[in-house]
């Protein structure tokens, strides 16, 4: 049997029901998120968020210092040391709190891969300010991601 014309194929496909079953059951995550009103935060839940925001701010400060103020020192090492500590602290803080979205570890893995690639480039050119800024940005994105998936702020419709 020959293939239908392309236009006919498009027309026929678009006329079909437009539904795909998600492979995961997404309802439990939604139920969890809507079960607790966003404004009804318990006091002890505030601290991970506060410390998360503080961590992001300090990373920015350390980066600025490393890149702009102390370019002759081993900027990458000091930034990495500080970032590792902050990341571990956040992961421990959120350990008992389930993430409200799935697949975030894959995004984190992508950022970690980017981190490795930049570090490799920095080994050949340790004082390259553009690479250091890029590394700082990737560190920042990792901390933001960890914070965001545990304390989401839903966007406006």
């Amino acid at each position: 049997m020959s293939k239908p014309e392309f236009d006919h194929f498009i027309e026929r496909s678009l006329a079909q029901p437009s539904e795909i079953q998600p492979e995961k059951d997404l309802w439990p995550g939604i139920e969890h998120a809507i079960g607790k009103p966003i404004t009804d935060q318990k006091p002890h839940n505030i601290w991970p968020k506060v410390s998360g925001v503080a961590a992001c701010f300090i990373v920015a400060l350390v980066t600025w210092q490393a890149v702009m103020v102390q370019p002759k020192h081993d900027a990458m090492a000091s930034m990495t040391h500080f970032f590792d500590q902050q990341k571990q602290t956040l992961l421990v803080q959120y350990e008992q709190q389930p993430a409200l979205v799935t697949g975030w570890q894959i995004q984190l893995q992508e950022l970690e891969n980017a981190e490795l690639a930049i570090k490799q480039a920095l080994e050949n050119d340790p004082q390259n300010a553009a690479l250091l800024k890029m590394l700082a940005q990737v560190y920042q994105q990792q901390l933001d991601l960890i914070n965001k998936v545990h304390t989401p702020r839903w966007q406006q419709i």
Partner: peptide, 9 residues
């Protein structure tokens, strides 16, 4: 999957 959840929330 993430966005579907976000849409319903």
């Amino acid at each position: 999957e993430d966005v579907t959840q976000e849409v319903f929330v």
